[in-house]
Amino acid sequence: MQKQPAVEIKQVTKVIRGRKIIDNINFSIYPGEVFGFLGPNGAGKTTTIRMIVGLMGITDGEILIKGNSIKTSHGAAMKHIGAIVENPEMYKYLSGYLNLVHFARMSDNVDKKRIDEVIELVGLKNRIQDKVKTYSLGMRQRLGIAQALLHSPDVLILDEPTNGLDPAGIREMRHYIRNLAEKEGLAVIVSSHLLSEMELMCDRIGVLQHGKMLGVQQVHELSSEQTQMVSFQVEPAEQAAIILRDMGSKKPQMKDDKVLIELTRDEIPVAAAKLTKEAINIYGIQAETKTLEDTFLELTGGKEIV
């Protein structure tokens, strides 16, 4: 991923009434990736998002959207951003359609055709002429996304996008976000305090705590050098443990009828071949990926997870 970043956050600090809400954070988001912003409530996720979209001023540092500073060229930067900050609040006394007309008038080059296209995209065609006050939360969420996508932005920012949605709605939203990143090449920034959800949705996750960026973690691809816990369901287990003793950096552990050992990705087939050669019955091999939760707990010191 050596592309030009879509969003660059450079040494950003935010001070409100003498208190450092955000302390010198740095990261970039690239086209085609879903970046998760994780942290307990009050860690500064929303504040950071508000700074990216220009709702809050930046005390120190700079935020660039496709190379445009949000501070000095608001219009040029906002052209590339579609955002829902917290809840998808719309004008309840207007129809969904008029809400979209309202936001279309605020953007360049959004015609009637584009509005219809977006309505189709989020699947609101049947209810678009109804007033927003009659919509369910899921529908409002979709209308919010329609509004954010109207001007074909390069960066989509969704603050707590699955808040208040039912499991089916969450699934749909997740699918939708992945699609936008993979097919349309959008850079998507989502924030959440739910780990499990972020794990399924994001490519990279940045963990924020007390206004500090604790680390950015790759979610899916584990590099071949990285070790992971592998469990072998074998018989006899004791013998297998002895065979595998000279592999890996740490000693294998026994757990019930399983042998647990830390291996790199490339070492797994090697170990399996060794066991087969010694006539050990293998019933299952499972790579126990270190879950994001473990990483998160490690990073935040296991405290204050909400």
Binding site: V53, L55, H74, G75, K92
Partner: peptide, 14 residues
Amino acid sequence: STGTIKLLLTKTPS
């Protein structure tokens, strides 16, 4: 009070 200000101010117009 309705929160729509966030949408109003995150578009291109100053």
